[in-house]
């Protein structure tokens, strides 16, 4: 029983972190209809920068999210303005190829500058746990989840309560309608991409503590995140949240009761099963396509 509760609590903690990472990906997809394959590589990039800064200065890696988030907002903005906006309007296939190219480039840069080896930030609390009612909660997981929930809350406030957020949601639902009422699509796209990328600032900092990583880890991460947003319904923020928690739970339960080496396969299995029975995901809606053009 304790083992089950332990697994469930851990699953929820991991799910919170996944939710944060996936929210940026699904936001970008919702607004721009782009699958940002580089999202995983950006996470690993942040994880590396966090690890480097931590090992040089000793500043707490999760706290470094405060620096990394605005930094990645800027990176996202530049990436959109400098690269992605150049192909807006061409086929979705091309945008996938482009973000794939960006992902490989980032991996290549990390390979050349940092070398192809495993790293992990290990602050003092790295191996410590809180013990509550016989359940042990790794401190790093708890702090990571708290950071994730804070940022998700902030993201929700921005999207729901500000004019900018409404503009982003309007563009996601109906780009031409949004343009008609004076929302500049390219500006909104840049903002959404920057905000989506900014979430990797927190996600990557947390990742550097929770998981060992090396340059090619980004493939694994992008697959997990894609699994989450396919399950939740591409473009749906609520779906990403639910998908993340479901997959976080599934992963820890598999690791606990089956074996660790099968737990990563859960994500791929879920993608296939969801596509087989409910191609639009749990929260995805099928909108009327014929009058969208």
């Amino acid at each position: 029983m304790t083992q089950l509760v332990q697994a469930l609590v851990l699953g929820l903690l991991i799910g919170g972190v996944y939710a944060l990472m996936a929210s940026g990906l699904t936001l970008i997809f919702g607004v721009m209809n782009i699958i940002n394959v580089a999202h995983g590589a950006l996470l690993i990039l942040v994880a590396f920068l966090t690890w480097k800064t931590w090992s040089v200065t000793g500043i707490d890696p999760i706290l470094l999210a405060v620096v990394m988030t605005p930094l990645m907002f800027g990176v996202g903005w530049l990436l959109y303005k400098g690269v992605l906006s150049r192909i807006s309007g061409s086929s979705p296939g091309m945008s996938v190829l482009l973000t794939f190219g960006i992902a490989i480039t980032i991996e290549g840069i990390l390979n050349v500058t940092a070398g192809n080896k495993f790293r992990s930030a290990t602050p003092s609390y790295f191996s410590q746990s809180f013990r509550i009612l016989g359940i042990s909660l790794p401190k790093a997981q708890v702090y990571g989840c708290i950071a994730a929930v804070l940022v998700l809350g902030l993201l929700y406030v921005v999207l729901a309560k500000t004019w900018t957020g409404r503009a982003i949601r309007a563009t996601a639902q109906n780009p031409s309608g949004a343009a008609l009422i004076g929302i500049q699509a390219s500006g909104v796209a840049a903002l959404a991409f920057a905000i989506g990328t900014a979430t990797t600032g927190v996600g990557g900092s947390v990742l550097s503590v929770l998981y060992p990583f090396f340059p090619a880890s980004h493939y694994d991460w992008i697959s997990r995140l894609l699994g989450i947003i396919v399950l939740g319904g591409m473009g749906s923020l609520a779906g990403a949240l639910v998908g993340a928690i479901v997959l976080g739970l599934a992963e820890t339960l598999t690791a606990t009761y089956v074996s660790l080496q099968w737990s990563t396969l859960i994500f791929y299995a879920v993608i296939m099963i969801v596509l087989l029975f409910r191609p639009q995901g749990l929260f995805g809606s099928r909108l009327r396509q014929d009058v969208m053009a």
Partner: peptide, 23 residues
Amino acid sequence: GGGTDSRLLVLGLALVLVVLFLP
């Protein structure tokens, strides 16, 4: 160009450049 590590960088950059300028 310095072995296999740089190969990935070259390929990634090439992919980005081809998509942007020679789609």
